[in-house]
Nucleic acid binder design. Sequence first.
DNA 1: ATATTAACTCACTAGAGAGTGAAATGGAGA
DNA 2: TCTCCATTTCACTCTCTAGTGAGTTAATAT
Lengths: 249, 249
Amino acid sequence: MARVDRHGDVAAGAATKQELRVGRVTEEAKTRRRSTKAEQRAETMEQILDEAELLFSRHGLHGVTLKDVAKRVGVHHTLLNYYFEDKKKLFDAVFARRAVVTSTKRMQALDEYDRASGGKPTIEGALHAFLDTDLDLYIHGGEGWKNYGALGAQVANTPEWGAELMDSHFDPVVLRLIELLKKAMPDCAEEDIFWGYHFVTGALMVTLARTGRIDKLSGGVCKSEDFEAIKARMASFMAAGFRQICKKA
Amino acid sequence: MARVDRHGDVAAGAATKQELRVGRVTEEAKTRRRSTKAEQRAETMEQILDEAELLFSRHGLHGVTLKDVAKRVGVHHTLLNYYFEDKKKLFDAVFARRAVVTSTKRMQALDEYDRASGGKPTIEGALHAFLDTDLDLYIHGGEGWKNYGALGAQVANTPEWGAELMDSHFDPVVLRLIELLKKAMPDCAEEDIFWGYHFVTGALMVTLARTGRIDKLSGGVCKSEDFEAIKARMASFMAAGFRQICKKA
DNA sequence: ATATTAACTCACTAGAGAGTGAAATGGAGA
DNA sequence: TCTCCATTTCACTCTCTAGTGAGTTAATAT
């Protein structure tokens, strides 16, 4: 197999394996000291998660085989069973890895904003804390985060087990956001606030999906990848929406 | 097989087949006159499309096998090849069946609104024409339409071939909506209008997905199935958003 | 040095899945 | 009635898949 062993030597007899697009060890790794077992384990698992994330985000849980993932990593497919037991658990691990990060960061951002605003949050402020923290991750986090975003968008629209996964990871942050929104709009019916959040999350999810549809539709005026444009508009757009449906009371 | 032949007689030796939840011919059909071949063909194809729609909407293209669908219909799985060639073509047929309906209806609604408003459309008006026409279909169209909605939500968030499918069916209506929005906001940058539409479509898609997430999140205050609640809020929410991001110019 | 344990591959199983071509069935027209 | 044609099933093929258990290799601990 065209893979590279842990000493950094290329395995012999490794003729035709272009499909090993990624490879486990890059040139720089050759020079790097051989790592310990624990490091090795962590590194391999990360690589598996990365490639799985990429493929799952494009083809969905059922559209990817363990062999597809293994081939990209450059390992035998049964290694994925070794590390992650089965396919669904691998998927969950992929999702969880970054979900905890974004969840935690947003929770912190909301807490901080709450404090900074002296308990007098605005709708815009709360939405900015919630959205921008997330969007920054996708903007500055590299390919992995982008892929994770697309994966999340799929999960959010999967009736089968999607809600379950979302719930388990994001309920606390979302409820915290709702709390701030309630503070900002004390006279607004709870119902309206929840529906408003529903719109927000929907808009965020299509954004993360980056299907490229808006590009063609707008004739190039808007770009799917342009999360900065979203960041510049979304919070105020949604805040105005909240104000509108809440004032009718 | 526990299926029922075209005379309405239950096939003999049909012991254990509860999984045939739907069955091809219902009691009332027994009494109905035997239909012609063309009718038969159309009816069978419809049943296949219905069951495929249901399963695809829940498990996605790759999560469904032709056998799964065939079992629900109560026919041999190769019959689906006979009628629809292969799986992807069946999927496309499922999607197309209702896409043309909603697309046409919304186009008419937009045209009519444009005329009725005397060439002076409002943002709310245009959005209402676009959204309510669609939502009414899901509200009054029965299970099939609900399933189709969930399917559409998935398609819209599928990078693989989703944008393609959406484009081919919905570009004209969406562009028509954009046209009206431009008329309603002549000073608004094109970019902002497209991003606004992007938010609208995202919010609509999560709605159609009906994952049930909002139910749990809101502690029962909001219900995924409650499209009337969406209809009552969405157009004005989004219109306010448009106004907000457009006035900054 | 040796024994232990972790990381990883290999050979294999058991089964599913899509699809094909031939056959059966039965209605419709001559 | 006989024949034709559409509908439908059936018997198979070929490939792919997830997963298991045994075996290999190398790092680590003693």
